[in-house]
Design a protein around this nucleic acid. Structure first.
Lengths: 247, 247
DNA sequence: ACGCCGATTTGACATAGATCAATATCAGGG
DNA sequence: CCCTGATATTGATCTATGTCAAATCGGCGT
């Protein structure tokens, strides 16, 4: 309740999954045309979140789940003493807010890193609808499960990779996600700062910067500020598989 | 299919949630008596997993979800080069296998750290039943969500805590979970090795050992091998909130 | 009870990455 | 278009934790 979000209802900005180009990536993946129409009723609000604004904050109560229609967000957990841990970066088609279902309270902040358009999906409605449409139910479970799977990957990264591996894995992950969404897998714009990358990867911003420079010196990538180009994707892949010990 | 699990059917070892002392911790939490009886039908198998045995392995296909009735397990992701990252420790009432729903393939190994008794819950049956029983559906979603929330906590730990904080947070977490299950929150048996603790916390076993010794020297805990006693729980709590910089 | 192997502890040393610091660059507002 | 604060790069050091090594402990199987 700290800030009243600007909400645009369905009358003003037409929001329907049937017509959305993301529907194969997003919640309604795999539904029939008739089912899709029902799902359209779920997404009854569309909310623009401007760069730097919060979609929700840690401690706030769960109002809905949020699907990203366009834009880019980060979610971060914050330690009482002010330390921030970025828990993920989210782009179109991603569903956010699932961490709050268990307690009805958000456990992390969600901030837009660029102007973002959000489809708001009330959890109750989703649960009701998914009782009627098994394919939707199944797909929702898959989406939650994939979030768990993603988290396991992050644990692996944070718990047992060296700085270079982490960064290489991060770039490959971004590349793959952009590709899935029809963008270039080799050339993209980093929407987050070095500090945010560092927080996500458990590194300091200087280390991120140095490691990027190092990759560039090796001819693996070309970076200029936030513009990034992957020159040797295979080189990055090799880095990720590397053991840390010299033995 | 590498190993055929030993399976005991419901006829031999009576498995019913209605009578299970864990039902408030486990999936059927919050159901009415009548609903509980339906859920009994879900758990149609009970499987004992002996210490050191696998409940499932990475790459294996999803057969069911698994609720721990008694015992202790770990789940771990393994990197191609052999590095192991422990993703979690699981005790009675915990539900395992949710990471596999998204792809129908397990992404981690689940190994018993002591003889463990498992209730097997076929996902299809759970999904069917939860379409009929909204409270079950809701609770299942909560359970998945809590797993996501837990994972965020682990990311915070791995990404921005120092060794002492990690270990203190780990001990406090165990303490709390034992307490919830009616065991002592101040004195318990560590079922995992120092190496497994280290893997979970992103530390080497020597660091774990040293840090435990350090805690003991400070009078915060008493450890003797796997037997652990928390002497000053407040002291541990203070450690967790500590900022890393000296500034 | 004995012996053995894996687990743990502890010490000495090495190093990846953090910290501190100085400069350079960029993007956004007036 | 210029100014200003945020962001990024790069270098010099420091330190927490990893690595290597050796000694001890403890539990299990025979």
């Amino acid at each position: 309740m700290t800030a009243i979000p600007r909400i645009v209802d369905i009358g003003k900005s037409k929001t329907n999954c049937s017509a959305c180009s993301l529907n194969e990536l997003c919640l309604p993946a795999g539904l029939s045309a008739a089912e899709l129409q029902s799902v359209d009723q779920l997404v009854n609000l569309r909310r623009p979140v401007k760069r730097g604004e919060y979609l929700y904050r840690s401690g706030g109560s769960l109002h809905a789940l949020y699907a990203i229609r366009s834009g880019f967000m980060k979610s971060s957990v914050l330690h009482e003493d002010g330390r921030e841990q970025v828990a993920g970066f989210h782009m179109m088609g991603d569903l956010m807010g699932m961490d709050a279902i268990g307690s009805n309270q958000h456990l992390c902040d969600a901030v837009a890193l660029e102007n973002t358009d959000i489809c708001e999906i009330p959890l109750d409605d989703l649960e009701n609808m998914s009782r009627k449409i098994p394919a939707l139910q199944q797909h929702f479970h898959r989406v939650m499960s994939r979030e768990i799977a993603r988290d396991y990957g992050v644990m692996l990264l944070l718990g047992s990779m060296r700085a270079e591996e982490r960064l290489a894995a991060f770039l490959l992950n971004l590349s793959q996600r952009f590709a899935l969404r029809g963008y270039s897998s080799t050339e993209f714009h980093l929407r987050m700062t070095r500090e945010e990358i560092g927080s996500y990867l458990g590194l300091k911003l200087e280390t991120v910067s140095r490691t990027l420079s190092h990759f560039q010196a090796q001819g693996l990538i070309a970076v200029q500020n936030k513009h990034l180009q992957i020159l040797k994707i295979e080189g990055l892949r090799e880095l990720v598989g590397q053991h840390s010990c010299r033995s």
